[in-house]
Simulated scan of single mutants.
Amino acid sequence: MMAPDVARVESAIEQAARRGDFDNLPGAGKPLDLPAAHDPDWWINQRLASGEIDSQALLPVVVLLRKEFERREETLAALPDERAVREYAEDFTQRVHQDRRANPFQRMLAPAWDPEDAVARWREVREPRPAPTAAPTPEPVAESRRRRWWPLRRRG
């Protein structure tokens, strides 16, 4: 004999099937792509492989912050003015400190970013670079006039 809750659920499923609520579902009639060995996380791996989930979102916050810090040059180049640079650096540092408070014993840390350092770097990134000049070509030295750098030994 089934428990009352199980019987109610079974009844609701049967009624939904008779009404056709399960007809035309995505993947209906297609086999499941299950791994050969038991993997309790098979469905997560399948979603990751399909590209439905951004794998970057699964990384720890400290790793994402470090990656963002490594791309700071690109971010700075896109910011329009010093105020925006200061706001971005303050926001980034606030997120770093928030992560440090949430995970006080983690070994990997993301660096904080001083807004004034960010502005100075922004100025360097935005300043036009001079075109590289060609190095002057040295004048050819005549072979007969070259001195040897090693001493000559006399054979005797």
Rank of each mutant, 00 (worst) to 15 (best):
L76P: 07
R66M: 03
T75V: 15
A36W: 13
R66E: 06
P60R: 02
H38Y: 15
F69C: 02
L79C: 12
R71C: 06
Q46R: 15
D81N: 14
S50V: 07
A77E: 12
E82R: 10
E74Y: 08
P60V: 12
A78Q: 14
I53F: 04
R83H: 08
A57I: 00
W43F: 05
A49W: 04
E74N: 15
E73G: 12
E73M: 13
V62P: 05
H38M: 13
A84I: 13
D81R: 11
V61T: 13
P35N: 07
A57N: 00
S50N: 06
D54Q: 09
Q46K: 12
A36K: 15
S50F: 02
H38L: 12
P35H: 10
T75A: 07
I53M: 02
L64C: 10
W42E: 02
F69M: 10
A49F: 02
E68V: 12
L79D: 10
L48P: 03
A36Y: 08
L59W: 09
S50L: 14
E68P: 03
D54L: 00
K67S: 11
P80L: 08
R71Q: 14
A37C: 08
R66F: 03
A78V: 06
A84R: 14
I44G: 00
K67G: 15
A78R: 15
S55I: 05
Q56K: 10
W42S: 05
R83L: 12
A77H: 08
P80I: 12
A84C: 13
T75R: 04
D39L: 12
P80N: 10
E70G: 08
S55Q: 07
P60Q: 09
R83P: 01
A36L: 14
P60H: 03
E74K: 08
H38C: 10
T75W: 01
L48G: 01
E73K: 10
F69W: 05
A37L: 12
Q46C: 00
W43Q: 09
A77W: 11
E74T: 14
P35Q: 05
H38F: 15
F69Q: 13
F69E: 04
L76M: 08
T75S: 01
W43H: 06
P40Q: 02
T75D: 00
A49E: 09
F69Y: 11
L76T: 11
P35E: 06
E68I: 09
G51E: 06
A77I: 11
E68G: 14
L64P: 00
E82I: 12
W43A: 06
E82D: 15
R72N: 14
V62Y: 03
P35L: 10
V63Q: 00
K67V: 03
K67P: 02
E70H: 03
V62E: 10
L58I: 06
R72S: 13
L48C: 05
R66P: 05
D54P: 05
N45H: 11
